[in-house]
Amino acid sequence: MKNRWKALIAMTVLAALAGPPAEAKDMFYYIGYGVIQVIDGDTDEIVADIPAEGWLRETALTRDKRYLYVTAKRHLIHKVDLEARKVVDTLDLNGDGWDRFVYGFDLAPDGKTAYLSVRGRTTEGGEVVVTPPRLTQMDLKTGKTLRTLELPWDVATLTTVKDGSMVYAIGKDLYKIDVSGKEMKIVETYPMYEKQMNFLPFWNYSWENGGIFMANYYTPELMGLLGINKETGEITDTPLNGIPVFAYSVIYSPDKKKAYGVMDELNVIDLTTNTYEAIVVNHEGTAYGINVSTDGLKVYLAGGGSTLTIYDTKTLKPLKVLQMATDGMDLRRVTF
């Protein structure tokens, strides 16, 4: 009897230490094809479909968690009202004779403008003209371009940092761009190419990842985690020991003692030793995206094929497989 009480107390204390505030609620957004599907993190059921045209790619969340911006077909920007669960506005970057291709997308902290890395293409006299990527600040209400800065050819993705005063754009190297003044300018280059760091610019998490924009990279020898603290702009490079696993995307556990990566396996990374702790073959096959529940008890694999698999982080066994309406690109979590 006494022991049982002790155990109960211990569990309660643990839950209080590790768990989120009781009122926190996870909602997951499955970034699909022509649709965003909403999953309730308590029941792990699909609770809503939000139609959104095109093959969906980048996502960014407003500070108030009301709107999720999602790019589609590399030239549409959907504004999704998460409360009303519908697309309330769509901007199309194509026009005036130009095709445009968005690869990096992030919101300014006020949510009124966005920073995009955009390539342009047109024809002149029957010849194709392609422009290098341009860092573009866009008014999200009007779709007007406020200012641009030509970037090196290799730039793909980007993130805003230091309360919107800087943008970090990533290609072969990481370019730090000061956007606080009238003119945007590259002020520093963080070298990656010479360190043979290869970075897949599709999947990164920040608001679900303790404010750290993070993606994995590869050198010929190893896999590492590249983290950017969105608040301070600090870059952390975490090379991992051992034969690299294959992963499209990585995310921290909420306590940041671990990281999870996914491609054909769910990889558990021990961040005290920077080694691979467990490698579990995916229940349903290749997945692109990964996310964790706020309490750290569940990890979600989705994207690639049309399944979403929820794993128990303690046992690394699948708890549930959801059959999604479409194939997918990614899975984002918003905690209300």
Partner: peptide, 14 residues
């Protein structure tokens, strides 16, 4: 090969 149907749209779109 993995069942590459799972990678189809990711490859096609971009």
């Amino acid at each position: 090969c993995q069942a590459s149907a799972r990678d189809f749209h990711g490859c096609a779109g971009d």
